[in-house]
């Protein structure tokens, strides 16, 4: 079954056609990567999936539910978890509280006015488990502001995971990471992808070839090639448009 299905997505900014008939799908247990040169329309695509922008035409279907017109928070409730290209966390909250809040979003009503949320054991335990899974459990009580860049990336991922997502939308998770950190994150994601399908937008080719089951090449708002990583590596159109472009 396809967890995410995007059908004929179209978006224009004035005369610029930034998404042209984009269709792609992410089946259960798989990682679908989107690559493309800068300005190809990757960010616009992500925005349309996460609800920052509305497409002019086309549909976004998450776990069988049409979320094209849904608000951002409704998409999250429907099971979309995402990380940002530029990390976005709650700086004054502790690491644990960041993740516990994400868990709170999926665990009953938050219109509760009396009982201290910080003492809700199930939220804290869930958050702690997620942090430990990403190996930053020892940083749980530190303010998120004090984390290193790499740790923040992991915290973002933890926030996304704590929401028990049906699909992870990862926007350049490797950006700004060193070699060691990247390798570690790739390991973590490789571990995760069988249980949580992913749509991965990334520049790091190592990451893509290690993680992706399918790759779509986006150029000028259009998907010019789609297939297994090995096929894409040898696809002339993809090479010309993207890999060649990168070589210049």
């Amino acid at each position: 079954m396809d967890v995410l299905e995007i059908r004929n997505l179209n978006k224009r900014f004035g005369a610029v056609h930034v998404s042209r008939n984009i269709s792609l799908s992410v089946p259960d247990g798989q990682c679908h990567a989107v690559i493309g040169p800068n300005g190809a329309g990757k960010t616009t695509l992500i925005h349309q999936i996460s609800g920052v922008l509305q497409p002019d035409a086309g549909e976004v279907v998450l776990a069988g539910r049409d979320i094209t017109a849904s608000k951002t928070w409704q998409r999250a409730q429907a099971g979309l978890g995402r990380t940002f290209q530029l990390t976005s966390v709650l700086p004054s909250f502790s690491v644990l509280e960041n993740v516990a809040l994400a868990a709170q979003a999926k665990s009953g009503s938050s219109f509760r006015f009396f009982r201290p949320a910080g003492r809700e054991a199930d939220l804290n335990e869930k958050a702690m488990r997620t942090l430990e899974r990403l190996k930053i459990g020892d940083r749980a009580l530190v303010p998120a502001d004090d984390l290193s860049h790499g740790e923040r990336r992991l915290l973002e991922l933890a926030i996304a995971l704590a929401g028990a997502p049906r699909l992870l939308l990862l926007d350049e998770p490797m950006a700004g990471l060193g070699r060691v950190e990247s390798a570690m994150l790739i390991d973590i994601l490789a571990d995760l992808r069988r249980s949580i399908p992913m749509l991965l937008v990334e520049h790091d080719m190592d990451a893509i070839f290690q993680l992706a089951d399918t790759v779509s090449v986006l150029v000028d708002g259009r998907i010019v090639a789609q297939g297994a990583p090995e096929d894409i590596r040898n696809d002339p159109a993809a090479r010309a448009a993207y890999l060649g472009d990168k070589g210049q």
């Binding site: 996460s50 608000k71 951002t72 928070w73 999250a76 709650l90 004054s92 809040l101 219109f111 949320a117």
Partner: peptide, 20 residues
């Protein structure tokens, strides 16, 4: 409480809170 935590989160980073 839960409510206040969401409120503070929305103050610090509304976008992130919405996406949660």
């Amino acid at each position: 409480a839960r409510f206040g935590r969401v409120l503070r989160a929305a103050r610090d980073n509304p976008g992130r809170t919405e996406i949660m």
